[in-house]
């Protein structure tokens, strides 16, 4: 899917999947592998995902289940939001509980709430939108950094010129 309108290359995108059901991860992996070039990192244990996030990894979008042993999906997404605030967060859950949805949106700045059973096409669209946003923000940040750098250079030049004349 080499859409010319894309602001990023799919192979540059890293998608993180967290679900205690291996079959869910497996089917998602299989689908994404077929349809996209994304790099996929999947975890059945939330703690492993958090460890991964803490060790210098760079996720671009995080998809998590809600009900999991020990650590629930909201806690997982909250930790990711702290470590990687620019990576959009998606809750993929079969536990259709309004309260947990609202809590997730408010607490972790949720990008999207997707219910199980999910539709592949819909999930793919959500992921694309999230990544689009993620890379737009990234590009914006890059541009700002570039401008910042240029301004630094300019101010350096300015100083050199002043020094030369004084």
């Amino acid at each position: 899917m080499n859409d010319s309108t894309l602001t990023y290359r799919e192979s540059d995108a890293t998608v993180v999947l967290v679900d205690d059901e291996e079959m869910v991860l497996s089917s998602l992996r299989s689908f994404l592998e077929l349809e996209t070039e994304y790099g996929v990192e999947s975890f059945t244990e939330p703690r492993a995902a958090l460890d991964w996030a803490a060790n210098g990894a760079a996720p671009d979008v995080v998809v998590s289940d809600f009900l999991m042993p020990e650590i629930d999906g909201i806690e997982v997404l909250r930790v990711f939001a702290e470590k990687h605030p620019h990576a959009p967060r998606i809750l993929l859950t079969g536990y259709a509980d309004k309260e947990s949805a609202i809590k997730a949106i408010n607490d972790v700045g949720l990008f999207q709430y997707v219910e199980k059973p999910w539709d592949n096409e819909h999930l793919l669209m959500v992921l694309r939108n999230a990544l689009e946003r993620r890379f737009l923000v990234k590009q914006l940040q890059d541009k700002i950094a570039e401008i910042d750098e240029a301004r630094g250079e300019l101010s350096g030049l300015q100083k050199d010129i002043l020094r030369t004349f004084i």
């Binding site: 089917s27 299989s30 079969g94 259709a96 199980k116 059973p117 592949n120 096409e121």
Partner: peptide, 24 residues
């Protein structure tokens, strides 16, 4: 609710896998 949670994962997997199979 528990049943929904239990059902939704395999159901999601079934639907997703069927879709993936079709695409493949």
């Amino acid at each position: 609710a528990g049943l929904a949670h239990e059902m939704n994962s395999p159901l999601g997997t079934l639907i997703s896998a069927a879709d993936t199979l079709d695409r493949g």
